[in-house]
Protein backbone atom coordinates (compact mmCIF):
# COMPACT_ATOMS: atom_id res chain seq x y z
CA UNK A 1 0.00 0.00 0.00
CA UNK A 2 1.60 3.22 -1.19
CA UNK A 3 0.93 6.86 -0.43
CA UNK A 4 0.76 8.75 -3.72
CA UNK A 5 -0.42 12.16 -2.55
CA UNK A 6 -0.80 13.81 0.85
CA UNK A 7 -2.25 17.05 2.19
CA UNK A 8 -2.34 18.35 5.73
CA UNK A 9 -4.37 21.26 6.96
CA UNK A 10 -2.86 21.84 10.38
CA UNK A 11 -1.84 24.53 12.87
CA UNK A 12 1.36 24.80 10.83
CA UNK A 13 1.66 26.21 7.31
CA UNK A 14 1.59 22.77 5.80
CA UNK A 15 -0.62 23.38 2.76
CA UNK A 16 1.75 25.82 1.07
CA UNK A 17 4.99 24.25 2.32
CA UNK A 18 5.98 27.31 4.37
CA UNK A 19 6.59 25.02 7.32
CA UNK A 20 9.76 23.95 5.55
CA UNK A 21 10.75 27.20 3.86
CA UNK A 22 10.00 29.61 6.71
CA UNK A 23 10.03 27.30 9.70
CA UNK A 24 7.69 26.36 12.51
CA UNK A 25 4.91 28.78 13.42
CA UNK A 26 5.09 29.51 17.12
CA UNK A 27 2.00 29.17 19.30
CA UNK A 28 1.12 29.90 22.91
CA UNK A 29 -1.71 28.81 25.17
CA UNK A 30 -3.45 25.45 25.23
CA UNK A 31 -5.16 25.41 21.85
CA UNK A 32 -3.46 25.08 18.46
CA UNK A 33 -5.91 26.21 15.81
CA UNK A 34 -5.48 25.14 12.22
CA UNK A 35 -4.14 27.60 9.64
CA UNK A 36 -6.89 27.04 7.11
CA UNK A 37 -6.45 27.76 3.43
CA UNK A 38 -9.10 29.55 1.40
CA UNK A 39 -11.65 27.05 0.14
CA UNK A 40 -13.45 29.32 -2.29
CA UNK A 41 -11.76 27.87 -5.36
CA UNK A 42 -12.61 24.32 -4.31
CA UNK A 43 -15.97 24.28 -2.59
CA UNK A 44 -19.10 25.95 -4.00
CA UNK A 45 -20.16 28.84 -1.75
CA UNK A 46 -23.60 27.46 -1.04
CA UNK A 47 -22.08 24.24 0.29
CA UNK A 48 -19.22 25.97 2.10
CA UNK A 49 -21.62 28.18 4.05
CA UNK A 50 -23.28 25.15 5.64
CA UNK A 51 -20.05 23.33 6.47
CA UNK A 52 -18.61 23.30 9.96
CA UNK A 53 -14.87 23.49 10.45
CA UNK A 54 -14.30 19.71 10.52
CA UNK A 55 -16.29 19.16 7.34
CA UNK A 56 -14.65 22.17 5.67
CA UNK A 57 -11.11 21.08 6.56
CA UNK A 58 -11.80 17.44 5.67
CA UNK A 59 -13.46 18.19 2.36
CA UNK A 60 -10.85 20.86 1.54
CA UNK A 61 -7.88 18.63 2.30
CA UNK A 62 -9.58 15.75 0.48
CA UNK A 63 -10.20 17.73 -2.69
CA UNK A 64 -6.66 19.12 -2.66
CA UNK A 65 -5.23 15.62 -2.34
CA UNK A 66 -7.37 14.26 -5.14
CA UNK A 67 -6.20 16.89 -7.63
CA UNK A 68 -4.63 15.13 -10.62
CA UNK A 69 -5.00 11.71 -8.99
CA UNK A 70 -7.71 10.17 -11.16
CA UNK A 71 -10.62 8.31 -9.64
CA UNK A 72 -10.62 6.45 -6.34
CA UNK A 73 -12.41 3.24 -5.42
CA UNK A 74 -13.54 4.45 -2.03
CA UNK A 75 -13.19 6.82 0.92
CA UNK A 76 -11.96 5.65 4.33
CA UNK A 77 -11.76 8.19 7.15
CA UNK A 78 -11.02 8.34 10.85
CA UNK A 79 -12.32 11.02 13.22
CA UNK A 80 -13.21 10.75 16.89
CA UNK A 81 -15.73 13.57 16.82
CA UNK A 82 -16.20 14.96 13.32
CA UNK A 83 -18.15 18.21 13.34
CA UNK A 84 -18.78 18.05 17.08
CA UNK A 85 -19.30 21.80 17.36
CA UNK A 86 -22.46 21.47 15.26
CA UNK A 87 -23.70 18.84 17.72
CA UNK A 88 -23.43 21.38 20.50
CA UNK A 89 -25.08 24.03 18.37
CA UNK A 90 -27.96 21.66 17.84
CA UNK A 91 -28.10 20.83 21.55
CA UNK A 92 -28.27 24.55 22.25
CA UNK A 93 -31.15 24.89 19.79
CA UNK A 94 -33.00 22.05 21.51
CA UNK A 95 -32.63 23.68 24.91
CA UNK A 96 -33.17 27.31 23.85
CA UNK A 97 -36.26 26.62 21.77
CA UNK A 98 -37.50 23.91 24.12
CA UNK A 99 -37.65 21.28 21.39
CA UNK A 100 -39.54 23.64 19.10
CA UNK A 101 -39.11 24.13 15.37
CA UNK A 102 -35.40 23.71 14.70
CA UNK A 103 -33.25 23.98 11.60
CA UNK A 104 -31.70 20.66 10.55
CA UNK A 105 -28.36 21.92 9.18
CA UNK A 106 -26.43 21.57 12.45
CA UNK A 107 -27.88 18.09 12.97
CA UNK A 108 -27.03 16.79 9.51
CA UNK A 109 -23.56 18.34 9.43
CA UNK A 110 -22.67 17.12 12.92
CA UNK A 111 -22.59 13.42 12.08
CA UNK A 112 -18.97 12.27 11.81
CA UNK A 113 -19.65 10.59 8.47
CA UNK A 114 -20.63 13.94 6.94
CA UNK A 115 -17.05 14.43 5.66
CA UNK A 116 -16.81 11.09 3.85
CA UNK A 117 -20.39 11.59 2.67
CA UNK A 118 -19.72 15.09 1.34
CA UNK A 119 -16.54 13.97 -0.40
CA UNK A 120 -18.40 11.07 -2.02
CA UNK A 121 -21.18 13.38 -3.14
CA UNK A 122 -18.86 16.08 -4.50
CA UNK A 123 -16.59 13.65 -6.35
CA UNK A 124 -19.41 11.27 -7.37
CA UNK A 125 -17.63 8.42 -5.63
CA UNK A 126 -20.07 5.53 -5.14
CA UNK A 127 -17.42 3.12 -3.85
CA UNK A 128 -16.63 1.84 -0.35
CA UNK A 129 -17.29 4.56 2.20
CA UNK A 130 -16.72 4.42 5.94
CA UNK A 131 -15.92 6.53 8.98
CA UNK A 132 -14.08 5.11 11.99
CA UNK A 133 -14.59 6.99 15.26
CA UNK A 134 -12.68 5.02 17.88
CA UNK A 135 -10.92 7.99 19.50
CA UNK A 136 -7.12 7.68 19.40
CA UNK A 137 -7.30 4.61 17.16
CA UNK A 138 -9.74 5.97 14.59
CA UNK A 139 -7.09 6.76 11.97
CA UNK A 140 -5.29 3.49 12.65
CA UNK A 141 -8.57 1.61 12.08
CA UNK A 142 -8.98 3.46 8.78
CA UNK A 143 -5.47 2.46 7.77
CA UNK A 144 -6.09 -1.21 8.60
CA UNK A 145 -9.44 -1.11 6.81
CA UNK A 146 -7.69 0.23 3.71
CA UNK A 147 -4.96 -2.37 3.97
CA UNK A 148 -7.57 -5.16 4.02
CA UNK A 149 -9.39 -3.67 1.02
CA UNK A 150 -6.16 -3.86 -0.98
CA UNK A 151 -5.51 -7.43 0.19
CA UNK A 152 -9.06 -8.41 -0.80
CA UNK A 153 -8.42 -7.06 -4.28
CA UNK A 154 -11.46 -4.80 -3.93
CA UNK A 155 -9.66 -1.55 -4.65
CA UNK A 156 -6.69 -0.12 -6.47
CA UNK A 157 -6.80 3.37 -5.09
CA UNK A 158 -8.45 5.06 -2.10
CA UNK A 159 -8.84 8.39 -0.40
CA UNK A 160 -7.80 7.91 3.22
CA UNK A 161 -7.61 10.42 6.02
CA UNK A 162 -8.09 11.65 9.55
CA UNK A 163 -9.52 14.86 10.93
CA UNK A 164 -10.57 16.64 14.09
CA UNK A 165 -11.74 20.11 15.06
CA UNK A 166 -11.39 22.04 18.29
CA UNK A 167 -14.81 22.82 19.68
CA UNK A 168 -15.12 24.93 22.82
CA UNK A 169 -17.47 22.44 24.42
CA UNK A 170 -15.29 19.48 23.70
CA UNK A 171 -12.25 21.32 24.90
CA UNK A 172 -14.07 22.24 28.12
CA UNK A 173 -15.01 18.62 28.77
CA UNK A 174 -11.44 17.40 28.46
CA UNK A 175 -10.16 20.43 30.37
CA UNK A 176 -12.40 19.61 33.33
CA UNK A 177 -11.23 16.02 33.13
CA UNK A 178 -7.66 17.30 33.47
CA UNK A 179 -6.36 16.64 29.98
CA UNK A 180 -5.08 20.14 29.17
CA UNK A 181 -2.51 22.40 30.69
CA UNK A 182 -3.74 25.51 32.44
CA UNK A 183 -0.34 27.19 32.62
CA UNK A 184 0.90 29.38 29.79
CA UNK A 185 2.91 27.14 27.45
CA UNK A 186 4.34 27.53 23.97
CA UNK A 187 5.69 25.28 21.26
CA UNK A 188 9.30 25.37 22.42
CA UNK A 189 8.49 24.58 26.04
CA UNK A 190 5.84 21.90 25.58
CA UNK A 191 8.13 19.00 26.37
CA UNK A 192 10.10 20.87 29.04
CA UNK A 193 7.11 21.85 31.18
CA UNK A 194 6.84 19.16 33.80
CA UNK A 195 3.11 19.54 34.37
CA UNK A 196 0.02 17.47 33.78
CA UNK A 197 -2.01 17.83 30.61
CA UNK A 198 -1.24 18.78 27.06
CA UNK A 199 -2.52 21.26 24.45
CA UNK A 200 -5.41 20.68 22.08
CA UNK A 201 -4.83 20.62 18.35
CA UNK A 202 -6.85 20.11 15.20
CA UNK A 203 -6.49 19.48 11.51
CA UNK A 204 -7.38 17.35 8.53
CA UNK A 205 -4.88 15.08 6.80
CA UNK A 206 -5.71 13.24 3.60
CA UNK A 207 -3.90 10.71 1.46
CA UNK A 208 -4.38 9.03 -1.86
CA UNK A 209 -3.19 5.48 -1.39
CA UNK A 210 -2.63 3.04 -4.20
CA UNK A 211 -1.35 -0.43 -4.88
CA UNK A 212 1.01 0.94 -7.53
CA UNK A 213 4.47 1.94 -6.21
CA UNK A 214 5.27 4.40 -9.01
CA UNK A 215 6.02 7.92 -7.72
CA UNK A 216 5.05 6.86 -4.22
CA UNK A 217 5.81 9.18 -1.30
CA UNK A 218 5.83 6.33 1.21
CA UNK A 219 4.90 2.70 1.61
CA UNK A 220 2.73 1.70 4.55
CA UNK A 221 4.10 -1.60 5.80
CA UNK A 222 2.24 -2.13 9.06
CA UNK A 223 -0.32 -0.68 11.43
CA UNK A 224 -1.10 -2.16 14.80
CA UNK A 225 -3.09 -1.18 17.86
CA UNK A 226 -2.95 -2.21 21.50
CA UNK A 227 -5.16 -1.89 24.54
CA UNK A 228 -3.72 -2.73 27.97
CA UNK A 229 -0.19 -2.34 26.62
CA UNK A 230 2.90 -2.69 28.77
CA UNK A 231 6.44 -1.70 27.77
CA UNK A 232 7.14 -5.40 27.41
CA UNK A 233 4.24 -6.11 25.04
CA UNK A 234 4.99 -2.92 23.12
CA UNK A 235 8.62 -3.90 22.51
CA UNK A 236 7.53 -7.44 21.64
CA UNK A 237 5.17 -6.05 19.05
CA UNK A 238 7.87 -3.78 17.62
CA UNK A 239 10.23 -6.74 17.27
CA UNK A 240 7.45 -8.74 15.61
CA UNK A 241 6.60 -6.00 13.11
CA UNK A 242 10.24 -5.39 12.21
CA UNK A 243 10.86 -9.11 11.77
CA UNK A 244 7.76 -9.55 9.61
CA UNK A 245 9.07 -6.94 7.21
CA UNK A 246 12.73 -7.94 7.49
CA UNK A 247 13.72 -4.53 8.83
CA UNK A 248 16.65 -4.22 11.24
CA UNK A 249 16.46 -1.90 14.24
CA UNK A 250 19.41 0.12 12.93
CA UNK A 251 17.55 1.04 9.74
CA UNK A 252 14.59 2.54 11.57
CA UNK A 253 14.06 6.11 12.62
CA UNK A 254 11.37 6.76 15.20
CA UNK A 255 8.54 9.23 15.62
CA UNK A 256 6.71 9.46 18.92
CA UNK A 257 3.49 11.14 20.02
CA UNK A 258 5.01 12.90 23.03
CA UNK A 259 2.62 15.66 24.08
CA UNK A 260 4.11 17.21 27.21
CA UNK A 261 1.75 15.52 29.67
CA UNK A 262 4.16 14.73 32.49
CA UNK A 263 1.87 11.94 33.67
CA UNK A 264 2.03 9.95 30.46
CA UNK A 265 5.11 10.97 28.45
CA UNK A 266 7.01 8.32 30.41
CA UNK A 267 5.56 5.83 27.94
CA UNK A 268 7.59 7.46 25.18
CA UNK A 269 10.76 7.92 27.22
CA UNK A 270 10.77 4.27 28.22
CA UNK A 271 9.92 3.20 24.69
CA UNK A 272 12.88 5.18 23.37
CA UNK A 273 15.23 3.69 25.98
CA UNK A 274 15.12 0.49 23.94
CA UNK A 275 16.66 2.36 21.00
CA UNK A 276 19.86 4.32 21.44
CA UNK A 277 21.27 5.26 18.06
CA UNK A 278 18.15 6.06 16.10
CA UNK A 279 16.98 9.54 15.20
CA UNK A 280 13.72 10.43 16.91
CA UNK A 281 11.11 12.88 15.61
CA UNK A 282 8.16 14.53 17.35
CA UNK A 283 5.01 16.11 15.91
CA UNK A 284 2.63 17.17 18.67
CA UNK A 285 4.79 20.19 19.52
CA UNK A 286 3.81 21.37 16.03
CA UNK A 287 0.08 20.58 15.98
CA UNK A 288 -1.04 19.76 19.53
CA UNK A 289 -2.83 16.63 20.70
CA UNK A 290 -5.97 15.25 19.09
CA UNK A 291 -7.32 11.75 18.58
CA UNK A 292 -6.35 11.46 14.90
CA UNK A 293 -3.04 13.33 15.19
CA UNK A 294 -1.26 10.20 13.89
CA UNK A 295 -2.64 11.03 10.43
CA UNK A 296 -0.53 14.20 10.64
CA UNK A 297 2.43 12.07 11.78
CA UNK A 298 2.11 10.00 8.60
CA UNK A 299 1.98 13.18 6.51
CA UNK A 300 5.10 14.43 8.27
CA UNK A 301 6.79 11.12 7.52
CA UNK A 302 6.24 11.63 3.79
CA UNK A 303 7.98 15.00 4.12
CA UNK A 304 10.88 13.61 6.17
CA UNK A 305 11.37 10.94 3.53
CA UNK A 306 11.72 13.56 0.80
CA UNK A 307 13.59 16.43 2.47
CA UNK A 308 17.27 16.77 3.24
CA UNK A 309 16.64 19.56 5.71
CA UNK A 310 13.78 19.96 8.15
CA UNK A 311 13.11 22.38 11.03
CA UNK A 312 15.04 21.42 14.15
CA UNK A 313 11.83 21.46 16.22
CA UNK A 314 10.80 18.15 14.61
CA UNK A 315 13.96 16.39 15.69
CA UNK A 316 13.78 15.22 19.26
CA UNK A 317 17.03 13.29 19.26
CA UNK A 318 19.90 12.74 16.84
CA UNK A 319 20.10 14.39 13.43
CA UNK A 320 17.98 14.28 10.32
CA UNK A 321 18.79 12.43 7.16
CA UNK A 322 15.88 10.99 5.17
CA UNK A 323 15.30 7.67 6.97
CA UNK A 324 14.86 4.37 5.18
CA UNK A 325 12.12 3.26 7.55
CA UNK A 326 10.06 5.16 10.11
CA UNK A 327 8.31 3.59 13.07
CA UNK A 328 5.61 5.77 14.63
CA UNK A 329 4.56 5.05 18.20
CA UNK A 330 1.61 6.92 19.70
CA UNK A 331 -0.74 6.56 22.62
CA UNK A 332 -3.96 8.40 23.34
CA UNK A 333 -4.68 9.14 26.99
CA UNK A 334 -2.29 6.30 27.86
CA UNK A 335 -4.94 3.75 26.94
CA UNK A 336 -4.97 3.36 23.18
CA UNK A 337 -1.53 2.58 21.78
CA UNK A 338 -0.56 2.27 18.14
CA UNK A 339 2.43 1.43 15.97
CA UNK A 340 2.85 2.20 12.28
CA UNK A 341 5.78 1.24 10.09
CA UNK A 342 6.50 3.18 6.90
CA UNK A 343 9.16 2.71 4.23
CA UNK A 344 10.86 5.45 2.28
CA UNK A 345 10.69 4.43 -1.40
CA UNK A 346 13.46 6.91 -2.30
CA UNK A 347 16.16 5.31 -0.17
Amino acid sequence: MYIKAATAISPQHTVDGRLFTEGVTAWTGNKCYAAEPSYIEMIPRALLRRMNKAVRMGVGAGLMTLQGQGTQDGIVLGTANGGIDDSFKFLRQILEYDEGTLTPTNFVQSTPNAVAGSLAMMTKNTGYNITHVNYGLAFEAALLDAMMLFEEGKVQSLLLGGLEEISDHNFNMDLQAGWFKTDEVNDTELFAFQTAGTVKGEGATMFVIDDDPEHALAQVLAVDQMNFATQLTLQDRVAQILAEHAVSREEVALMVGMNGDARHDGWYHEFLDAFDQQTVYSFKNLVGEYPTATAFAVWLATELFAREEVPQEMVLRGSHTPPKFLLIYNHYKAKQHSLMLLRNPRV
Binding site: V133, Y135, N227
Partner: peptide, 25 residues
Amino acid sequence: DYCSHTLRIVEQYRIHGFTNTINTA
Protein backbone atom coordinates in the same frame (compact mmCIF):
# COMPACT_ATOMS: atom_id res chain seq x y z
CA ASP B 1 -18.37 10.37 22.67
CA TYR B 2 -19.54 8.09 19.91
CA CYS B 3 -17.04 5.49 21.07
CA SER B 4 -17.60 5.82 24.83
CA HIS B 5 -19.69 2.65 25.06
CA THR B 6 -17.00 0.72 23.18
CA LEU B 7 -14.25 1.92 25.48
CA ARG B 8 -16.33 0.96 28.55
CA ILE B 9 -16.81 -2.56 27.26
CA VAL B 10 -13.14 -2.83 26.25
CA GLU B 11 -12.18 -1.71 29.76
CA GLN B 12 -14.61 -4.00 31.58
CA TYR B 13 -13.87 -7.15 29.58
CA ARG B 14 -10.21 -6.31 29.07
CA ILE B 15 -10.33 -6.80 25.32
CA HIS B 16 -6.72 -6.88 24.14
CA GLY B 17 -7.37 -7.52 20.44
CA PHE B 18 -8.53 -5.20 17.69
CA THR B 19 -11.16 -2.70 18.87
CA ASN B 20 -13.07 -0.16 16.85
CA THR B 21 -16.12 2.05 16.68
CA ILE B 22 -17.81 2.92 13.40
CA ASN B 23 -20.18 5.78 12.70
CA THR B 24 -21.77 5.69 9.28
CA ALA B 25 -25.08 6.89 10.74
